[in-house]
């Protein structure tokens, strides 16, 4: 069993690495593999260096970080809530981060100061989490957390709609809409530097929960009797999700379904053990998002097909299949 798990980790790491390389090598500029890599690592080849280091590298890095974040946080939330339908957006983090971004675009702040958009989005995520935590209370049941997340998501969604509704400037409305579709196009190393600290802190928090999530398989009372502080697990899960998913949404917009699907596909491969699902889901999420980001560039080069649109097109049918399978299991 142990070797089987190591093999799985190794295999997924290789796939992730491959997808990362593929992402670096995909783009409108037709250049050979050796020239690209040469430019990336040695810094020789003027214009190509710029393309590789300033355009493709940040894009691939963000794909890697955000994909891993979505997979990991999805696995943690499903494990914590013991609900296979949980996903990172459930806590209201994505919707509120979107609202923050929308306010930045709507107010014109993002025109004056481009980093205002991700910063406002991050602020939105933080506020959402504080709200959910306050609504849920200290030792809330999982149902209360889900309801609090739904309430915060709906409110943020309504405020976003209001901004679109009242927008007198059609270009601003267009920009809001495009941003909300989720994309990794035209992101710089500045975006990477902005998101990375939050994402890394979030990962550290989420990865620390492995053993607690295993114990929670038997319910909160049994877990508590095994020495797990369920209150602490709740706090860490919420903060870790807020930091990593908040930062991801802040730089890339809302990208759905990855956090829902990836833990599902991989769960049977780790014998359903929540702690083992964490690293596996992080790698799976990273390779899936990198692959999707390569696909959007190959399917419609020059048309800027949005990443979030592709993940939703692939994800929604999968979700339906999931509902179907769950229903069959209940009958």
């Amino acid at each position: 069993m142990k070797d089987h798990f190591r093999l799985l980790l190794l295999g997924l790491s290789l796939i992730t690495l491959l997808m990362f390389a593929l992402s670096l090598l995909t783009g409108p500029a037709a250049v050979s593999v050796s020239d690209s890599l040469n430019a990336l690592f040695t810094g020789q080849g003027d214009a190509l260096v710029l393309v590789m280091r300033e355009i493709r590298l940040p894009r691939a890095l963000l794909g890697l970080m955000i994909g891993a974040t979505l997979g990991l946080s999805g696995a943690v939330l499903q494990g914590y809530l013991r609900n296979p339908l949980a996903e990172p957006g459930l806590l209201g983090v994505s919707a509120s981060a979107s609202l923050g971004a929308v306010i930045a675009i709507y107010s014109g702040l993002s025109l004056v100061f481009p980093l205002a958009l991700p910063l406002m989005a991050l602020a939105g995520a933080v506020i959402a989490v504080l709200l959910v935590q306050a609504l849920a209370g200290r030792a809330a049941g999982t149902l209360i957390i889900i309801l609090a997340g739904v309430a915060v998501s709906s409110f943020a969604g309504a405020m976003t709609s209001l901004a679109l509704n009242l927008s007198s400037n059609p270009f601003a409305a267009m920009e809001i809409l495009y941003w909300m579709l989720g994309s990794l196009t035209d992101r710089s190393m500045l975006h990477v530097a902005l998101a990375a600290p939050f994402i890394l802190v979030g990962w550290a928090l989420l990865f620390s929960l492995g053993r607690s999530l295993d114990a929670l398989t038997l319910g909160p009372d049994a877990a508590a009797s095994m020495g797990i502080s369920v209150k602490r697990v709740q706090l860490i899960a919420i903060l870790g999700t807020a930091a990593s998913v908040g930062a991801s949404t802040a730089v890339a917009g809302a990208i759905g379904f990855v956090g829902l699907i990836v833990p599902h596909i991989l769960r049977p491969l780790v014998g359903s053990q929540p702690s083992r699902l964490l690293p596996v889901s992080a790698l799976g999420g990273a390779s899936m998002l990198l692959a999707a980001d390569v696909l959007v560039r190959m399917i419609a080069p020059g048309r800027d097909l949005k990443l979030g649109v592709l993940t939703a097109i692939v994800g929604a049918p999968f979700f339906l299949w999931l509902v179907f399978r769950t229903r069959r299991a209940l009958i």
Binding site: R82, L216, T217, L218, G219, D221, A222, S225, R267, G271, S272, Q273, P274
Partner: peptide, 11 residues
């Protein structure tokens, strides 16, 4: 040993 026999995942 709680009263409800909860087993969340197929471990």
């Amino acid at each position: 040993l709680p009263q409800d026999r909860e087993i969340g995942w197929a471990i």
